[in-house]
Design a protein around this nucleic acid. Structure first.
Lengths: 230, 230
DNA sequence: ACCTGAACACCGTTCAAGT
DNA sequence: ACCTGAACACCGTTCAAGT
């Protein structure tokens, strides 16, 4: 799980481009869970959620389709593993001592969101079954930090879930709203056409606002204001 | 495995049943956008997101598959229409004058969430293209209410999106986490097994907490505390 | 305007079998 | 232990054609 972009593909290895004949192409590394997951992420990035099929995945890996099923239960399993792998998280040692708990939380959650947005398919695939070590590690860090900050034990879970909900909602919305210019245009047209019925959101240009990062940060501040111990 | 047929077919019986003067909106005979959408919702409720196929939908409607394509662009279109229909919303007249703006907001958002949870597939299908009159009506109501409550124009969009994000994240999480007892069991087992690595969330029983409604309300209160004008 | 069947180019997964 | 092709039971959608 360490090597994220490591050379799992044999065709275009840069070091040996000039000298390389056919021979090395045959040395595909053996199929493995990690290689399957990494390739699934590549494929999802390139083709989107409907672009991942077991057949295409096997093609990219240079194996037969059914070989995948030795390493992986089924297609759902591939999705779950891909999602957790996107949220790689090594509990940084300094977060245990930093005096700026709020900064720590904001930083971790912005990183969370940024990672998911780099793989826009991931937000819509985060089910309970996908909870792997990376996601759990982030929840643990959040829990520890909030507790240290003075959030009461009785409020802790509600606070964590509210932050989770906010991040998931924001990420999912951004990923699913902003994928194509075509969608933007259609929404704008529809809104203009019906503006008489929705005067307030028309006036504030709610659906045309494009500052996603700023809006995320400001909403997060609202939430952290609300749950800070006073 | 419940092959439940709602008697919705048979080409010529609408006139022949002479004892039935009751005319409901659920008219059988002609294919129409509304009838397609309503049946799609039924099918999604019964079989889940993968259970909706154009062939099955046509079957339920007693028509050929390709007949659907006269009324509907494609399968995506069916999804979008189904999502908006779930969020039916008639702008209640009294919300314009109620003195309890916070109660109004909580009420509308709890209704929003409840409607989506009654159709758990809907949360994961809410894209920009799905924004129809019902969703826009809710955003308009939210906007008006917050504005009336004294939220500054410069904060308005951030406030609305933060509420949207929160509701969407909470609803999506609840829908996708709690669908099966099997998932719960697997999560519990995994957590117990790895509890040494995640002591804090283990101690607070974060993943076993089952009070979704309460957690939703408490998190919403955090957020509203944070964005209330002081 | 509305509906249709046949056909195309795909799917995920079971199975029995190969090394 | 690991991999495989053939086969099954499906998909969404194009097309040419019917009323």
């Amino acid at each position: 799980m360490v090597a994220k972009r490591s050379g799992a593909r044999s065709k275009g290895d840069q070091q040996s481009v000039s000298l390389q004949p056919v021979q090395q192409a045959s040395s595909e590394p053996p199929l493995s869970r990690e290689r399957i997951v990494a390739t699934a992420v590549e494929l999802l990035d390139a083709q989107g959620i409907d672009g991942l099929t077991m057949r295409r995945l096997a093609d990219r890996l240079g194996s037969g389709v059914m070989s995948l099923y030795w390493h992986v239960d089924n297609k759902e399993d591939v999705f779950d593993l891909a999602v957790d792998s996107v949220l790689e998280h090594r509990g940084s040692p300094e977060t245990g001592e930093s005096p700026d708990w709020r900064g720590d939380v904001v930083h971790m959650l912005e990183d969370w969101r940024a990672r998911m947005l780099r793989h826009p398919w991931s937000a819509s695939l985060l089910r309970r079954r996908a909870l792997g070590r990376n996601i759990l590690g982030r929840l643990e860090m959040l829990s520890k930090t909030l507790s240290r900050a003075g959030v009461a034990d009785a409020d802790l879970n509600a606070a964590i879930w509210s932050l989770w909900n906010y991040v998931m909602g924001a990420t999912l919305t951004r990923a699913s709203f902003d994928l194509s210019e075509e969608d933007r245009a259609a929404a704008q047209q529809r809104l203009t056409h019906l503006s008489e019925h929705y005067p307030t959101i028309e006036r504030s240009r709610l659906l045309l606002d494009n500052d996603w990062d700023g809006a995320f940060r400001r909403g997060l501040d609202f939430l952290l204001d609300g749950l800070s111990p006073r």
